[in-house]
Nucleic acid binder design. Structure first.
Lengths: 145, 145
DNA sequence: TATTGTTATACTCTATAACTATA
DNA sequence: TATAGTTATAGAGTATAACAATA
């Protein structure tokens, strides 16, 4: 009966608790009125760093190129992205946000993230929000490792 | 061009960054040799708090009862759980870990969480690990809110 | 031959709807 | 009627394998 109240903060125990809470967090996020979270993430990435090839997006989002092709097809059908031929390399296609994509992204920024932002605002103190913000930075480092 | 280096740590910005890093973290976790993460989570929950009904597990894992039924069927086919009739209520079925389930859980505890624990150990200082452990507690509070 | 991208197929996870059995 | 549980079906997300087009 391993107890979590007296844990020595060892990496293994942090890892297991982090896995568990992240799984629950993903479900809470997905349960909210939303359009598909991964599609949102791709739009967000294009908005953040500009038009990208499918391969580059796959690397950035940590998925296989085939998986990204599937997501891009869905975004294309929804009219949220536009594809542009690469000026010199005929194999590559640059993916950009369409006007509708930008509108959708801005709307989702307000609506989707709403529940999570409100939960942070209402359940954490200012100091705790700082701790969470710091942890997000630490998690980014771990993900990129 | 919203800049993240000078962010005022507002809840909305924390929420969006948290969403993004959590999505990447899930993919990093899933990319590692593993058996299905949610199945692992269910075994872990039963181990932590003892045999439960399917409905109770659905509440704890934040999924619908039908989704839990599906996961339990997979765990049953794998031989990782056993089902026991409720002593007084014929509608209920208590779900317990089988011997194979315990073996699988212990093995996955070592193997699956391995990458994440190593990444935490290698990429964070002791203080940063404390920050992350604190953040996990804060996230638990948010998820349960 | 190597790279970029796509299509085909399958599996995990989750949902809603509809059903059965028991209280 | 209400509750516990299951089955049927569908969609998001991801993977591997196989293929086409371009460099």
């Amino acid at each position: 009966m391993e107890d979590t109240t007296t844990r020595p903060a060892g990496s293994v125990l942090i890892a297991e608790d982090l896995r568990a809470v992240v799984a629950l967090l993903v479900r809470r996020i997905r349960a909210n009125p939303a359009f598909p979270p991964h599609q949102f993430g791709v739009l967000r990435t294009i908005d953040r760093i500009g038009p990208q090839t499918a391969s580059q997006l796959a690397v950035l989002e940590l998925v296989r190129p085939q998986s990204m092709a599937h997501t891009l097809q869905q975004l294309d059908e929804a009219g949220y992205i536009s594809r542009h031929a690469h000026p010199t390399d005929g194999r590559q296609t640059l993916i950009a946000l369409s006007d509708d994509g930008r509108i959708a992204l801005d709307q989702q920024r307000r609506e989707i993230t709403g529940w999570l932002a409100a939960a942070i605002e209402e359940n954490l103190t200012a100091d705790e929000r700082d701790t969470l913000a710091d942890a997000v930075t630490l998690l980014s480092r771990i993900v990129e490792a």
